[in-house]
Measured scan of single mutants.
Amino acid sequence: RKWEEIAERLREEFNINPEEAREAVEKAGGNEEEARRIVKKRL
């Protein structure tokens, strides 16, 4: 699934746990840019 690939990239890029990465992607509706913004806000 594409969402899992996005979550994996976010996890590696921001050094967050898989659960946090998945939550961000879900919140963003699968949009990678939006997920990235969500993760950055949390850091």
Rank of each mutant, 00 (worst) to 15 (best):
R1W: 11
R1Y: 13
R1H: 13
R1I: 13
R1L: 13
R1F: 13
R1N: 14
R1D: 12
R1Q: 13
R1V: 12
K2T: 14
K2R: 13
K2Y: 12
K2I: 14
K2H: 13
K2G: 13
K2L: 14
W3Y: 09
W3I: 05
W3R: 05
W3L: 06
W3Q: 04
W3A: 05
W3G: 03
W3T: 04
W3H: 07
E4C: 05
E4L: 10
E4N: 10
E4Y: 10
E4F: 13
E4A: 13
E4Q: 11
E4S: 11
E4I: 10
E4H: 13
E5K: 08
E5F: 07
E5W: 08
E5I: 10
E5M: 10
E5H: 08
E5R: 07
I6W: 02
I6S: 03
I6K: 03
I6Q: 04
I6C: 03
I6F: 04
I6D: 01
I6M: 12
I6V: 08
I6A: 03
I6T: 04
A7W: 05
A7R: 03
A7T: 08
A7H: 03
A7C: 09
A7V: 11
A7P: 01
A7M: 13
A7F: 05
A7Y: 06
A7Q: 06
E8Q: 14
E8L: 14
E8T: 10
E8H: 12
R9G: 06
R9V: 06
R9E: 05
R9Y: 04
R9T: 06
R9I: 08
R9P: 01
R9Q: 07
R9A: 09
R9M: 09
R9W: 05
L10Y: 00
L10V: 05
L10D: 00
L10F: 02
L10A: 00
L10S: 00
L10Q: 00
L10I: 09
L10H: 00
L10K: 00
L10E: 00
R11A: 10
R11G: 08
R11F: 06
R11K: 09
R11C: 04
E12H: 12
E12N: 11
E12K: 15
E12S: 12
E12M: 15
E12A: 14
E12G: 11
E12F: 13
E12V: 13
E12L: 14
E12Q: 13
E12I: 13
E13M: 07
E13R: 05
E13L: 06
E13G: 03
E13V: 06
E13S: 05
E13Y: 07
F14T: 02
F14V: 01
F14D: 01
F14I: 02
F14H: 03
F14P: 00
F14Q: 02
F14E: 02
F14R: 00
N15G: 11
N15E: 09
N15K: 14
N15W: 07
N15H: 14
N15Q: 12
N15S: 11
N15M: 11
N15V: 04
I16S: 02
I16Y: 02
I16F: 02
I16L: 07
I16V: 08
I16D: 01
I16G: 01
I16N: 01
N17C: 05
N17H: 13
N17K: 15
N17D: 12
N17E: 12
N17I: 08
N17G: 13
P18D: 12
P18E: 14
P18Q: 14
P18W: 14
P18S: 14
P18I: 15
P18A: 13
P18M: 15
P18K: 12
E19D: 14
E19T: 11
E19L: 10
E19A: 12
E19K: 11
E19I: 11
E19S: 11
E19Y: 11
E19H: 12
E19Q: 11
E19G: 10
E20Y: 07
E20R: 04
E20G: 04
E20V: 09
E20A: 06
E20H: 06
E20L: 14
E20S: 06
A21S: 06
A21H: 01
A21E: 00
A21W: 02
A21V: 03
A21Y: 02
A21L: 03
A21F: 02
A21Q: 00
A21D: 00
A21R: 00
R22H: 08
R22Y: 14
R22P: 00
R22G: 04
R22V: 08
R22S: 08
R22Q: 10
R22W: 15
R22I: 12
E23H: 09
E23W: 12
E23S: 10
E23D: 15
E23Q: 08
E23Y: 11
E23T: 08
E23G: 08
E23A: 09
E23F: 09
E23C: 05
E23M: 08
E23I: 08
A24D: 03
A24C: 07
A24N: 02
A24T: 05
A24W: 03
A24P: 01
A24L: 04
A24Y: 05
V25Q: 01
V25S: 02
V25R: 00
V25H: 01
V25N: 00
V25A: 04
V25D: 00
V25M: 05
V25F: 03
V25C: 05
V25K: 00
V25E: 01
V25I: 10
E26A: 12
E26S: 10
E26G: 07
E26H: 12
E26T: 09
E26Y: 09
E26P: 00
E26F: 11
E26Q: 11
E26L: 11
E26R: 09
E26W: 10
K27I: 15
K27C: 06
K27E: 15
K27G: 08
K27H: 13
K27A: 15
K27S: 14
A28Q: 02
A28W: 01
A28F: 02
A28P: 01
A28Y: 02
A28M: 03
A28T: 05
A28S: 09
A28K: 01
A28D: 00
G29D: 14
G29R: 13
G29Q: 12
G29I: 08
G29L: 12
G30P: 01
G30F: 04
G30W: 03
G30M: 03
G30A: 03
G30Q: 02
G30D: 02
G30N: 03
G30I: 02
G30E: 02
G30K: 02
N31I: 09
N31W: 05
N31M: 07
N31A: 05
N31E: 07
N31V: 09
N31G: 03
N31P: 00
E32H: 10
E32T: 04
E32G: 03
E32F: 10
E32I: 08
E32V: 08
E32W: 13
E32A: 07
E32R: 04
E32D: 03
E32M: 09
E33R: 10
E33I: 08
E33W: 09
E33D: 13
E33N: 09
E34D: 09
E34Y: 10
E34K: 09
E34A: 08
E34P: 01
E34L: 12
E34G: 05
E34W: 10
E34Q: 08
E34T: 08
E34R: 09
A35Q: 00
A35H: 00
A35W: 00
A35G: 02
A35L: 01
A35S: 04
A35E: 00
R36P: 00
R36Q: 05
R36V: 07
R36I: 10
R36W: 07
R36F: 06
R36E: 04
R36H: 04
R36G: 03
R36S: 03
R36A: 04
R37Q: 12
R37H: 09
R37M: 10
R37E: 15
R37N: 10
R37F: 07
R37V: 07
I38W: 10
I38C: 07
I38V: 07
I38Q: 08
I38K: 04
I38A: 08
I38R: 04
I38N: 04
I38L: 11
I38D: 06
I38E: 09
I38G: 03
I38M: 07
V39A: 04
V39R: 01
V39N: 01
V39Q: 02
V39L: 05
V39I: 15
V39W: 03
V39S: 02
V39F: 03
V39K: 01
K40S: 09
K40V: 15
K40A: 13
K40G: 06
K40T: 10
K40E: 15
K40M: 15
K40I: 15
K41C: 13
K41P: 03
K41Q: 10
K41I: 07
K41S: 07
K41F: 07
K41D: 15
K41E: 15
K41T: 07
K41H: 10
K41M: 06
K41W: 07
K41V: 06
R42F: 15
R42A: 15
R42D: 15
R42I: 15
R42E: 15
R42Y: 15
R42M: 15
R42K: 15
R42S: 15
R42Q: 15
L43Q: 09
L43P: 10
L43V: 06
L43W: 05
L43T: 04
L43A: 04
L43Y: 06
L43F: 07
L43K: 06
